[in-house]
Amino acid sequence: MIKKKICNLSQLENKNYFKTWVKEFKDEIIIFKNDKKIYVKSSICPHFGGPITYNQNEKHLYCHWHGLRFSVDGKCINQKSFKACLSNYNFELKDNYIYIKK
């Protein structure tokens, strides 16, 4: 198992999300806060690989390339036939830092 320190909680404050490429996981990760709960997901859209961002006003994730929208659980909510989900990462909060594990 790989464990990697990603960010400090304060880095989530501005936009309510933090995004970074994580070389060890060969993935781009998005960490976001929704109703005070923290979520860690892949921010590579499973459709064509587009960038995913969290919209804190509408409380969903969306892809900038083709407009797919995902719930905070990672399920696509605006394309009924699209079954792939945003993959989830386990994480651990220690001394105000978020560590992700895979």
């Binding site: 993935d27 590579i44 499973p46 459709h47 690989g49 960038p51 993959s87």
Partner: peptide, 21 residues
């Protein structure tokens, strides 16, 4: 550039990245 990067990470359209790193 992003599409190239994810394809080199074995990204499959409509599926995403492989589960195993």
């Amino acid at each position: 550039l992003r599409r190239q990067k994810v394809k080199r990470m074995n990204f499959k359209d409509f599926k995403g990245l492989p589960n195993k790193i």
